[in-house]
Design a protein around this nucleic acid. Structure first.
Length: 443
RNA sequence: GUGGACGUAGCUCAGUUGGUUAGAGCAUCGGCUUGUGGUGCCGAGGGUCGCGGGUUCGAGUCCCGUCUUCCACCCCA
């Protein structure tokens, strides 16, 4: 048993895990590029204050924070959005709009781990800043959907549940909640899916709801509404103030616009309106969404939304923004669960076998020549019987095996064996590199 | 941070009411094979049974603690 283990919630990446991780990253990158997003990154260590400014002091309980040797309160980043906000704010006047940026990086959260939730994880983040219209929301959602598809997931294996924090806020307001109360109510609504009704009712009462039972009923009814027209019909039956009416209908117009865009983009089958989603974070300001796997445990795969006020709150200039984050852990788990992890083969192109020191030197020289041509060429470190060397050649997955024995050396040739067909031909040693390259390209 | 379950080789697991030196398959390495292949046959290495303490003549097995992993809370950026 190893004396030293990874810390809880941290992972070792053995070659197999590492190539899988690289593959996931590369798919994310390709998707983001197809949508015209540019990659950025920031430091893994940030000042604690940057995080508490965004999320409040309580967040420190979930952070890997400590004091550095200069007495600064610092923390490993738990997410990338504050860093993004800082970077964009600092150059806000110089950056062409819309700003479409993505990043893939490691994040850290100090909490007890469970399956799909580790203390260290990688997250794919994509954000559009400087565009307030629904086209930005649509593009971000589109990238989210295409990313999951490109990772190998199929249409019926996940769904993006789309909701609207502002619509909720205005609705709650129309029920008689004010400022602080309304935010608290949204927090309760966010949890109602996993909460017994009596408890939710009680929580609304504690919050000071004017008429808890009636409010609870209104909220549960609202949550069930299946589409925009149902919401419109529901609202028309309510006795709304003119202000509420205007605010709510403004959101419905935005909804129609967004759904129209998603429809044109061919994303209808992947996205559905679902007002049970609220998202706990107080800084979301408009459309919010979460992608869930629809097979197995129904875990959340990604989440995001609009946060038009965040940059200003963090001390920058006001700028509309929308984005999402997607973690590597649940995605990997899901791909494994549906048996859709890619088979990543890491095979050699050319394997060289030899006899004697002269054979070894000749093989080594040719191996380097082939490597300089971009081929992966390998040879055994120590001489062994031909049978054993060929076994190694087979295990390496090489397409061709080159033989350097006394007979070949004497004749000035190299035997080139095509491993798949078993055919073998002699090639003049002087023309080896060109001949092998030609054979290899033929397959 | 709270509560529960689990823990035997790199992996998947056996291991009798507590009784010799803890086993198998897969994987790894070697041999059969001194110039030609992943199969086959033979063999080897690898475990202070998560760790620490206790009960006992004797503990992988029973008890306590602790850590880890998993599950439910908390939280979910």
């Amino acid at each position: 048993m190893a004396t030293h283990k990874t810390l809880p919630g941290f992972r070792d990446f053995y070659p197999e895990d590492c190539s899988l991780r690289n593959h996931l990253f590369s798919v994310w990158r390709q998707c983001a590029k197809r949508f015209g997003f540019q990659e950025y990154d920031g430091p893994i260590l940030e000042s604690l204050e940057l995080l508490t400014a965004k999320s409040g002091d309580e967040i420190a309980g979930q952070l890997f924070n400590f004091e550095d040797k200069g007495g600064r309160a610092v923390t490993l980043r738990p997410e990338l959005t504050p860093t993004l906000a800082r970077m964009v704010s600092a150059k806000a006047n110089a950056l062409p709009r819309p700003i479409k940026w993505y990043s893939i990086g490691e994040n850290f959260r100090y909490e007890r781990q469970q399956k799909g939730r580790l203390r260290s994880f990688y997250q794919f983040n994509a954000d559009i800043l400087g565009e307030a219209g629904p086209i930005a929301d649509a593009e971000v959602i589109g990238l989210l959907v295409e990313s999951l598809c490109s990772q190998g997931l199929q249409r019926d294996e996940f769904i993006v549940r789309l909701s609207d924090r502002n619509l909720w806020f205005y609705f709650i307001e129309s029920l008689g909640f004010t400022g602080e109360q309304a935010t608290g109510a949204l927090g309760i609504i966010d949890k109602m899916e996993r909460m017994p009704p009596e408890k939710a009712l009680a929580a609304l009462g504690e919050l000071g709801a004017p008429d808890p039972a009636k409010t609870f009923q209104a909220i549960t009814d609202f949550q069930q509404l299946p589409d925009v027209e149902a919401i419109a019909a529901f609202l028309s039956k309510m006795d709304l103030s003119e202000e509420s009416h205007d605010k709510l209908n403004g959101r419905l117009d935005a909804w129609r616009e967004l759904l129209d865009l998603l429809d044109a983009a061919g994303l209808n089958d992947f996205v559905k309106l679902d007002l049970r989603i609220v998202r706990g974070l107080a800084y979301y300001t408009g459309f919010v969404f979460e992608a869930f796997q629809t097979v197995g445990k129904g875990r959340a795969l990604a989440g995001g939304g609009r946060y038009d006020d965040l940059l200003e709150k963090l001390g920058g200039s006001a700028m509309p923004a929308v984005g999402f984050g997607m973690g590597d852990v649940t995605l990997r788990d899901l791909l494994e669960e549906v048996n859709r992890l890619p088979r990543l083969i890491d095979k050699a192109d050319i394997f060289l076998v030899y006899t004697g020191d002269a054979g070894f030197k000749a093989a080594l020289g040719d191996a380097y020549a082939l490597r300089r041509q971009g081929l992966r060429a390998e040879l055994p470190f120590r001489e062994a019987g031909m049978g054993k060397q060929f076994k190694q050649a087979a295990q390496s997955g090489a397409d061709f095996t080159l033989v350097y024995g006394p007979e070949e050396l004497a004749q000035g040739i190299v035997q080139v064996k095509h491993m798949r067909t078993g055919e073998q031909k002699a090639v003049p040693a002087a023309q080896l590199v060109g001949s092998v390259l030609a054979l290899w390209r033929e397959g």
